[in-house]
Deep mutational scan, measured.
Amino acid sequence: MSIQHFRVALIPFFAAFCLPVFAHPETLVKVKDAEDQLGARVGYIELDLNSGKILESFRPEERFPMMSTFKVLLCGAVLSRVDAGQEQLGRRIHYSQNDLVEYSPVTEKHLTDGMTVRELCSAAITMSDNTAANLLLTTIGGPKELTAFLHNMGDHVTRLDRWEPELNEAIPNDERDTTMPAAMATTLRKLLTGELLTLASRQQLIDWMEADKVAGPLLRSALPAGWFIADKSGAGERGSRGIIAALGPDGKPSRIVVIYTTGSQATMDERNRQIAEIGASLIKHW
Score class of each variant (00 low, 15 high):
M1F: 02
S2F: 11
F6N: 09
I11Y: 11
F13A: 14
F17W: 10
T27W: 02
K32P: 01
A40R: 03
R41M: 11
R41I: 09
E46A: 10
G52D: 08
E56T: 11
E62V: 08
M67D: 10
S68D: 00
V72Q: 02
V72K: 00
C75K: 00
A77S: 10
L79G: 02
V82R: 07
G85I: 04
L89S: 06
Y95I: 11
L100V: 10
V101D: 14
P105C: 04
V106Y: 08
H110Q: 09
L111K: 08
L111N: 06
D113V: 09
T116A: 07
R118N: 15
E119V: 02
A123E: 04
A124C: 08
T126Q: 09
S128G: 02
S128A: 00
A132M: 00
A133H: 01
T138A: 15
T139N: 10
T139H: 10
I140F: 06
G141D: 06
P143W: 02
E145N: 15
L146R: 00
L150T: 08
N152G: 13
G154P: 04
G154F: 04
H156M: 08
H156K: 15
R159S: 08
L160M: 12
R162S: 10
W163D: 09
D177A: 02
T178S: 12
T179N: 00
M180P: 03
M180C: 14
A183D: 07
M184L: 07
M184G: 01
L188Y: 08
L191Y: 07
G194I: 05
T198D: 10
T198I: 06
S201V: 03
D212N: 08
G216R: 08
L223R: 05
W227P: 00
I229K: 02
A230W: 03
A230G: 12
K232R: 06
G234N: 01
E237I: 10
R238A: 09
R238G: 11
I243K: 00
I244R: 00
I244N: 02
P249V: 06
P249D: 07
G251K: 14
G251C: 09
K252D: 09
S254P: 07
V258F: 02
Y260H: 01
Y260G: 00
T267E: 11
E270H: 10
R271W: 03
A276C: 12
A276N: 09
E277F: 08
S281K: 14
L282N: 03
L282Q: 06
K284N: 11
